[in-house]
Design a protein around this nucleic acid. Structure first.
Lengths: 228, 228
DNA sequence: AGGCGACTACAACGATCGTTGTATCTTCTG
DNA sequence: CAGAAGATACAACGATCGTTGTAGTCGCCT
């Protein structure tokens, strides 16, 4: 939004220095530090050090200060993870190519496993989400809504429509509400893992995580499988 | 833990002044403020004001300062809520008096509803839990373990043994792991509500919460009901 | 009454932190 | 080369906060 004028030729496209673009370095560092320490504990100095930038540069890029920086990275991180989650969803549960009934459990399990991997891959993002939930009372409603709409709600809707597709083809029985089935699917595959691992802070042994994931998928299929 | 010694006559039993015991006033206020603001944002001055005490009194009762106060109230709050949850569990799912098969869904639903009510009743406690999860990386492992062992793990074990009892009597099929069934039950009845309501910060309309709860119970019974 | 224990008001300290201004430096562009 | 634009180092400010010390107040018990 800021900085990039309207008709500059190729100037701002190339990173000024030989290094990485300072702006993205700051955003990445801020993601990590905000995720690790939370809004209050995170200090501008720490973010600057992590980004190998000076605090002054941060304030040049984000005139709104800490608050604007936080809003920006929440949005940025949500979009990034959302895209990754949607990619895995389309990869293992493409509404265009429904799986054979025999492969349904395999595909759901593959999706679940891929998502669990994302939880540790994007550890800092999910730490950030934890802090968002914890500090929900101190975050303006508009910011919360913008975040939900940029990330979680989109994913939820996509999973719901995938469930609807499976239902239409008779692979599962959504029992009237594809959205409800989607929510239950996500709850069953992730709740226990996230809780036991403190949202990835203390990762579980892989085989344990796998056991929980497949148990969740099997329970989901018993609850929503069309064959029963 | 403090205060109630073993052989004090009647001195510490009666509040010294005409008011409430300052210690419990401080603990309650600290619970509320820590839950609302989190560890870093919460200030001793705020807690003192909320407890109508002076900061000096706080340091007299908790020589360890902010850290000890936090540890104490985490433990205290966890025990209180645990007892409440166990009471509801025994009320609606007493292992000694298993329900008739026809009443199983009704009883499970009653338990689920009672627990959902607790989420808003003990709003500050669950806010505290959010912050614990968010700041897990900054809390000593021993404190985290002590908290889990004083609260969540006990409840989880009790629900698991209730599930085992239901399984033994053929009312449900635990599919090999009562603990897993318990975790799935709790996930199905509470995950969506807690997420959608931001853990009680923005409470859902009661009928909406009810809809989600009963949908969770029905899904659980489809996954774990012995009749299928 | 006298003393004791708990509570309080008040001030002060050191530390951390968000934020800004300024002067200097580097690197790219014309 | 000159100039511009971005980045940096540095210092300083005001504010908040945890914590401690001190002196004083209030109510209870002997």
């Amino acid at each position: 939004m800021t900085g990039m004028g309207s008709e500059d030729k190729t100037r701002t496209a190339q990173p000024r220095r030989g290094r990485v673009d300072k702006a993205t370095a700051i955003v990445q560092a801020a993601c990590e530090v905000f995720g690790r320490d939370g809004y209050s504990r995170a200090s501008i100095d720490t973010i600057a050090a992590e980004a190998r930038a000076s605090t002054r540069t941060i304030y040049n890029h984000f005139p709104g200060g800490k608050e604007e920086l936080f809003r920006s990275i929440v949005q940025w991180s949500a979009e990034r993870v959302r895209d990754e989650q949607l990619a895995q969803l389309r990869r293992y549960l493409d509404p265009e190519r429904p799986p054979h009934p025999d492969d349904l459990e395999r595909d759901l399990l593959a999706l679940a496993r891929a998502w669990v991997v994302l939880i540790t891959d994007f550890r800092y993002h999910f730490s950030l989400v934890r802090h968002i939930y914890a500090e929900a009372g101190h975050i303006p409603a508009e910011v919360l809504d913008a975040w939900q709409e940029a990330g979680p709600r989109v994913v939820g809707r996509e999973v719901a429509s995938a469930m609807a597709a499976l239902g239409d083809r008779g692979l599962i029985d959504v029992h009237g509400s594809p959205a409800q089935a989607a929510a239950h699917f996500m709850a069953l595959i992730s709740t226990e893992i996230t809780q036991r691992s403190y949202w990835g802070v203390r990762p579980l042994p892989p085989e344990e995580a796998d056991r929980l994931t497949s148990a969740g998928v099997r329970a989901f299929l018993r609850a929503y499988g069309s064959a029963g």
